[in-house]
C-alpha cells in the first residue's frame, strides 16, 4: 500500500468515527431501520404462511392418493368376487 492510500484510510476512519456514527444513529436512519425490520418480519410471516400452505396441499395430495388406493382395492376386490363360482364356505 502506498502512503497515500494509507493516509486516505486513516482520514476515512476519523470521518467515520466522528460523523459517520452520528448519521447511522440519527432519527432518520432509525426510521429506515424500523421499516427494514418490519419488512423482514413481514417476509418471515409470509414464508411461514407459504410453508403452511404447502403443508396443506401436501396433505390434500396424500388424502387423495389414499382415496385412490382404496377405490382401486375395492374395484379389485369386486372383480375378484365376480370371478368366483359357488359359495365361499370354509372347508
Amino acid at each position: 500500500m502506498t502512503i497515500g492510500s494509507k493516509l486516505a484510510l486513516f482520514v476515512g476512519g476519523v470521518l467515520f468515527g466522528s460523523a459517520g456514527f452520528k448519521i447511522l444513529s440519527s432519527k432518520d436512519a432509525k426510521k429506515a431501520y424500523v421499516h427494514v425490520t418490519a419488512a423482514a418480519l413481514r417476509c418471515q410471516d409470509e414464508v411461514m404462511k407459504q410453508v403452511e400452505l404447502f403443508q396443506e396441499s401436501c396433505s390434500d395430495i396424500l388424502a387423495e392418493a389414499k382415496k385412490l388406493n382404496e377405490e382401486r382395492a375395492k374395484a379389485e376386490a369386486a372383480e375378484a368376487e365376480a370371478a368366483v363360482i359357488g359359495e365361499g364356505e370354509p372347508a
Binding site: 410471516d45 411461514m48 404462511k49 403452511e52 400452505l53 403443508q55 396443506e56 396433505s59
Partner: peptide, 9 residues
C-alpha cells in the same frame, strides 16, 4: 387449525 393461513382440516 392453522392460524396463519386460516386453514382448517
Amino acid at each position: 387449525v392453522h392460524e396463519r393461513t386460516c386453514g382448517i382440516i
